[in-house]
Design a protein around this nucleic acid. Sequence first.
DNA 1: CTGAAAGCGCTAACAT
DNA 2: ATGTTAGCGCTTTCAG
Lengths: 360, 360
Amino acid sequence: MDDPRQLKQRNRSAKRLNRSRVTLSVLSEKTGFDKSTISRVLRDDATLSIRPENLALIKNVASDLGYVPDTAARSLRLARSYSIGAIVPSLQNPIHAQIVEAVQSTCQARGYSLLISYIQLEESTPTRLQAFVQKHRVDGLLVHMLRYDASFAAEMRRFPVPVMMVNRLAEGVANSITVDDRSGGALATQHLLDLGHRQIAHLSVASQRFNAHQRFLGYRDALKAAGVPYDPDLVVEAGYDFADGVAATEALLKRRRGGFTAVFGVTLMAAAGSMNVLRRHGIEVPRNVSVMGFHDGLLAQVLTPALSTIAYPLFELGKAAADGIIDLVEGKRNEVVEVLATGVVVPRQSTAPALPRTRT
Amino acid sequence: MDDPRQLKQRNRSAKRLNRSRVTLSVLSEKTGFDKSTISRVLRDDATLSIRPENLALIKNVASDLGYVPDTAARSLRLARSYSIGAIVPSLQNPIHAQIVEAVQSTCQARGYSLLISYIQLEESTPTRLQAFVQKHRVDGLLVHMLRYDASFAAEMRRFPVPVMMVNRLAEGVANSITVDDRSGGALATQHLLDLGHRQIAHLSVASQRFNAHQRFLGYRDALKAAGVPYDPDLVVEAGYDFADGVAATEALLKRRRGGFTAVFGVTLMAAAGSMNVLRRHGIEVPRNVSVMGFHDGLLAQVLTPALSTIAYPLFELGKAAADGIIDLVEGKRNEVVEVLATGVVVPRQSTAPALPRTRT
DNA sequence: CTGAAAGCGCTAACAT
DNA sequence: ATGTTAGCGCTTTCAG
């Protein structure tokens, strides 16, 4: 009864469909033990007691035959899938790509797989998210979005599985993980103040709903703390992209030609746009004007001059998100509200001490 | 019998686990029809004949209740999952991110979901890939890799599901979709030749196994066609990254100071590194030296001067890959070997006509 | 220390 | 024009 029996099943015909999967039943036939026993052995079920020799036998046969439990059957039986769903706008944005990678590796480390869906913001109605959850039986949902509206939050609460917002302020939604953009904005501004700059322009963002608005508040915090009066004329509402940085800086130059010695852009891209315009106008960076970005990335290093910026805890964000949602799923936590500290100033070539008496 | 019966199951207790799923059985109770009938209705099974009124009834109830078929049960029953696995090295690389997005949207459009796995090259043994396939029951596998070795190819052939290489030359592996890098390299070189350049340096790549080697061959093709003798001294073996571009260009400058009027980098990043070094040495781009990259992307537009480059059919690549693997899965094709044409020259500010008589 | 049985939700073959 | 049945591969009582 302990002896593995040899079964011949060499139907290696052209039909690959026929290729018999190694299931528990197969292992049962080979080893003589019951499916249920084998299942428990392979899952290291502590409640099972079995002779060490038999345990070893079963494990060996399983690994020799390359047994891999079937996720579908498992999900069906357990009514859960050991997978997490992530709603992501686009991976083109390296910020998101980096977060997603961290999420993925953390999930993997904790035995979950990650199912990514690129539902666009407009289409991401609760109904669609519900359907996604139900269809794939994901155990939890991570939502990265550019913004969200309030009615959304209400629906989120009565979701069949835990939901968590990533990198978004989420009033009304129970679980979220964000970064303290405000103190990040202050940090960036402080860096410029430390270099002696007093006329610091800020390329901001239109809506108060965006994260970036917090950076603006941090900008004001730092000015205030340094006793530098806030001048609304130095703030231009822009956006996240290169083109936004270009447009905002053009506007700034038109509005006050030369009346600033530094620019703090909301974004790497916006700052890059700014540098581009400055150079086109013959304004040298950092000699005449210093430029500071936000977020770190390849882009910052590749620009000439390399962009000074704030390192943003993207990896930590992704990891915390994955850990958070899995904790929720496993009931290890009932609520997750985390605010990560922003990173650190990464000084590079785009910022330099303010020229004394520069009042062009 | 046609009348929907009202069932009370309002156990909206704190336990969300209890929240009863809408399954075929539930629909069966509500409508009075059998599960199997409902299943066939909902899948628009052509072999089923049913009264239009009943069909409508069933469909309505299903949608009212928000029925969503359970993927796990379906996979188990059908022994397939309607999902495609993708083995990707990293999404940090925007090239990959873009391809993956195209793959994803194409899969979605054809009713498949995409399961991404970041198995690293070193870990991507056939055994691991097998396990991945078996575990998730993916119907097909898309493999993006930086390189592969020959033994790999052999194992690939007897996989339980179709496998396809994306953007890799794959001798031995049946299915692949690649881009004609060679003519792309020729195109890039031709652009510089057209501008009057004759001393065109090329930052190449070390191994012949890389795609980029094809670009080098294209470079030689174009030179030959133009009757410009190939000078090995103008070719520096580098790599894909910014730092590689920096190092290679430094080497080039040391080797022959000024003996070239243009640089063709294998990559956007390498070209960016090159521009950086050139500027540091006081060599103006494009006035003194023109620089040409390969692949298009945000990066190219953001650099100053904006980088001239070759648009690469990234989206098409992803789409063709997804379509190919799904065709294989569905038996619509038995083999997929596609080579896409490279894109087109995107001229920007980093290339300009060669100065006449520049023989520094 | 181990086995038998039931059932998750679905679909396909075979009944009516 | 619809219903019945069986079973995909797994885990969980409950019995020995």
